[in-house]
Design a protein around this nucleic acid. Structure first.
Length: 472
RNA sequence: CGGAGUAUAGCGCAGUCUGGUAGCGUACCAUGUUCGGAACGUGGGGGUCGCAGGUUCGAAUCCUGCUACUCCGACCA
């Protein structure tokens, strides 16, 4: 089997933002918002996702993603895919169902317990709904890769997983079916594997940063092999499931820029980030925490885990006989790591971080739409003709726009726009229509600004461009 | 899996204790007046009261069993 063993062009395949926008008239859309709080939702993100018409629960821990929620999920996925490509990871897709046989080989079929959903097909063959993909990717790797010259290799996919949680809760924060990006690296030895680990570490810093999130890498459990090569990425939030302890300094560390050389040495970036104390409650050593971090810089808070990276060495390659021939001509088990990001958990994590009493406040880079155009009086001919033109201009400017062209009252439109959290509201009312002015409201700051009609779209374009964070 | 709850119109709830043939708010449909913070009037449609048994002349209501969902705990991306 011939494989391309040459130097992979890291960063190839990063898509530039297309000039085409996503646009929609609310009168044609499906946005079932709720005025009242659903009784089943306890935490703010779950409440807001239901009220904003983003998700619908189908059973415990199973959710449909309604159009608005799905758009956010897709935006998050696009950012992850771009940053994975930048770091040299290659996207593929594995099935949701896996043969039990592979898991018997690794020994995990019996170890995994009741969290694994076991299924049998019409021929009584044992299958399972994959909770993760180490076995399957190792099987793929061993089937094709024979030589160290084909390494390093990092393969990832974004696929639905299932873990039969005893108690799913908090909406999609802890669901049974969940969408996850999981990647797997393959290297000839521990030293090379460490480089792969560093590439993902840096890619993760950039990924969360582009979503507007401060995700802190914290030392995590590694098991017998890993040494210090396991980190959880944690977003601070009061509703977080784990207690976390860290140095405030870590929040001011510089994010590696877009032109970071992923083929170069990234260890200085990683050691800078890991030099500041940060650990979850499972790992924290209070004496060390207090010794290393001055009292005024200590943060002890709650956090949501939105990703984990993990070096596991030859655990699966040994069990499953995934060997490569090294430069010395001898076969050795390949060294691997796995790298996960929970997409369906990131959505509520973002809402926990970005909301106020009126609703969600999306960072522009993950917002379902960038602008909502509010026609405050559709019965007014002048008002409507201005809005129609604005809608057209926003589309042409490449802005994702939702046009509220419904006959609802002004107050109701404001309330819906605030609830669903679109970052900019372009407001056209009958008064402004006559005086030639539009109003732009910034959802995040609450500030309103009057602008001449012809300046509205150029101003929005100029404001939104840097907030997309697709060049940082 | 241990503990605690809930189930009545799309959603949020009352009615259950004390049995008499189902109601409020909102949403929905029609219509008129409105139109810058979830407008108002008038008229209308929608519920085998989670499911299955039982008691009774009669069950949303009392009894038994089951199911689903939520919360706390243990567990977890």
């Amino acid at each position: 089997m011939q494989l391309n063993a040459g130097h992979r062009a890291v960063g190839a395949g990063i898509k530039r933002r297309s000039s085409r926008s996503f646009y929609m008239r609310l009168s044609n859309y499906f946005l079932p918002t709720l005025k009242e709080d659903p009784k089943e939702a306890e935490i703010v993100s779950h409440r807001l996702m239901l009220r904003a018409g983003m998700i619908r629960q189908q059973a415990a821990g199973l959710y449909s993603w309604l159009p608005l929620g799905y758009r956010v999920l897709r935006k998050i996925q696009a950012i992850i895919e771009q940053e994975q490509a930048r770091a040299g990871a290659i996207q593929m897709l594995m099935p949701t169902l896996q043969p039990a046989e592979l898991w018997r080989e690794s020994g995990r079929y019996d170890d995994y317990g009741k969290e694994m959903l076991r299924i049998s097909d019409r021929h009584d063959r044992d299958l399972l709904f994959g909770p993760t993909n180490e076995e399957m990717i190792t099987d793929i790797f061993r089937s094709y890769v024979r030589s160290y010259r084909e390494l390093p290799l990092n393969l990832f996919h974004v696929q639905w997983k299932f873990r039969d949680e005893i108690r799913p809760r908090f909406g999609t924060m802890r669901s049974r079916e969940f969408l996850m990006k999981d990647g797997y690296s393959f290297d000839i030895d521990r030293e090379a594997a460490e480089k792969s680990y560093h590439r993902m570490f840096v890619a993760y810093l950039r990924t969360y940063h582009r979503m507007g999130l401060a995700a802190i890498p914290m030392r995590a459990e590694t098991g017998p092999i890993g040494g210090d090569l396991s980190h959880e990425f944690i977003v601070l939030a009061d509703t977080g499931e784990s207690g976390v302890f860290c140095d405030r300094n870590i929040l001011e560390k510089p994010i590696p820029p877009a032109d970071t050389d992923f083929e170069g040495d990234l260890s200085s970036i990683v050691s800078d980030w890991t030099s500041a104390y940060a650990a979850t409650e499972d790992m924290v050593d209070m004496a060390e925490f207090e010794a290393r971090v001055p009292a005024q810089r200590r943060i002890s808070a709650r956090g949501i885990e939105v990703g984990q990276i993990f070096y596991f060495g030859t655990k699966y390659s040994t069990a499953m006989n995934a060997l490569v021939t090294g430069p010395d001509g001898r076969d050795a088990a390949v060294h691997s790591g796995s790298y996960g990001i929970g997409l369906t958990r990131l959505v509520p994590a973002l809402i926990e971080a970005f909301h106020d009493e009126d609703g969600i406040v999306w960072p522009t880079s993950v917002a379902p739409f960038e602008v909502v155009l509010l026609n405050l009086k559709t019965a007014d001919e002048k008002c409507s003709s201005i809005c129609d033109k604005m809608y057209h201009d926003l589309k042409n400017a490449g802005i994702d726009v939702l046009y509220d062209d419904t006959g609802a009252g002004a107050g109701s439109k404001f309330a819906t726009a605030d609830l669903v959290g679109i970052p900019f509201q372009l407001i056209i009312g009958p008064r402004g229509a006559r005086s030639g002015e539009a109003e732009i409201k910034n959802r995040s700051t609450g500030q309103r600004q009057s602008v001449a009609l012809e300046q509205a779209v150029p101003l929005l374009q100029k404001t939104i461009e840097p907030e997309r964070r697709d060049r940082i």
